[in-house]
Design a protein around this nucleic acid. Structure first.
Length: 273
DNA sequence: GTGACCACCTGGCCGC
DNA sequence: TGCGGCCAGGTGGTCA
């Protein structure tokens, strides 16, 4: 499932291929992908726009389209492909952007969870979804004292809280397990019980884990691949998520459910506070 | 404000 | 082989 490193990989891949291209038409085969505005308005506004740049904010892709941003969240299984207009259409291609060079940017999403917003640049930072996002992992203001302030009232397990995108963006289920393993924190520890050292470690290993994952093209657990069909290599670096044996102590990895999410941890290496 | 739960979706996997 | 049921999980909405 795409998390921050996967979105970063998709962004960089797309930038190499479609910057400067104009959108001459768009086909929407599944209306519910378009969260805002209406499908009709979306089509009306996006046709004729040029892809000036592609950015990322958390897990959102931001297509810079002249005076608008197209925000795209891949959710569980969203993927982008660049195809020739004559190429066969695949099942689950829900949004197809026709470009001015006879190619198409196709959004494919098996489970239809992905969302798109088309928002004026002048409004994009003041409205959902971007105005609800927390700090990027590499933000200098992401400090232990910031996390302390955010976590002090959170009695939920850290595994649940670390996934909260309004505090730190970009961490999904896979990387949450990895970050907590490296930080030696039990996933059921209440967020409010973490000390300064724990918070410092969370920040440190969030950066390290995501940086390494970006370098390796993301993680392919089940269904994620980049727009060029390239599978990420980071799954080879996973310590606990979906693993059987702890790489540190060789004990069996435990799997539990925390907040409804499959959670992997080592009972020996990750102690409750 | 907080926390628990559910819906959205489809395909893979497992047991029968 | 075919069928039914469970599971995967990011996010938003609802309710207590």
């Amino acid at each position: 499932m795409p998390e921050l490193p996967e979105v970063e990989t998709v962004k960089e891949t797309l930038k190499k291929q479609i910057l400067g291209r104009k959108i001459v038409d768009v086909s929407i085969n599944y209306d519910k992908i378009i969260e805002y505005p209406t499908t009709l308005e979306f089509k009306k506004q996006i046709v004729g726009k040029t892809i000036q740049d592609i950015k990322r904010r958390g897990k959102w892709l931001m297509f810079d389209l002249d005076d608008y941003y197209l925000l795209s969240h891949l959710r569980m299984e969203g993927k982008y492909f660049i195809k020739k207009a004559t190429d066969t259409h695949l099942k689950h291609e829900h949004v197809i952007f026709n470009l001015d060079d006879n190619r198409e940017l196709r959004y494919l999403d098996t489970r239809k969870f992905g969302k798109m917003h088309l928002i004026k640049k002048t409004e994009v930072m003041d409205r959902k979804p971007l105005n609800e996002l927390g700090k990027e992992p590499w933000d200098n203001t992401l400090t232990a004292s910031y996390l302390k302030g955010q976590y002090h009232s959170k009695k939920l397990p850290i595994k649940t809280v670390i996934l909260d995108q309004s505090i730190i963006v970009g961490i999904g289920n896979i990387y949450a397990d990895e970050i907590l393993f490296l930080s030696k924190i039990h996933p059921l520890t209440r967020a409010c019980d973490l000390n300064d050292n724990d918070l410092t470690n969370i920040i440190k290993y969030t950066k390290e884990t995501l940086e390494k994952a970006i370098k390796e093209g993301g993680t392919t657990i089940r269904s994620y691949e980049s727009s060029e069909g390239v599978h990420g290599r980071f799954q080879q670096s996973l310590h606990v998520h979906n693993q059987a044996i702890c790489p540190v102590c060789n004990l069996k990895i435990t799997k539990i459910r925390v907040g409804g999410r499959g959670t992997y941890y080592c009972e020996k290496c990750q102690k409750m506070v």
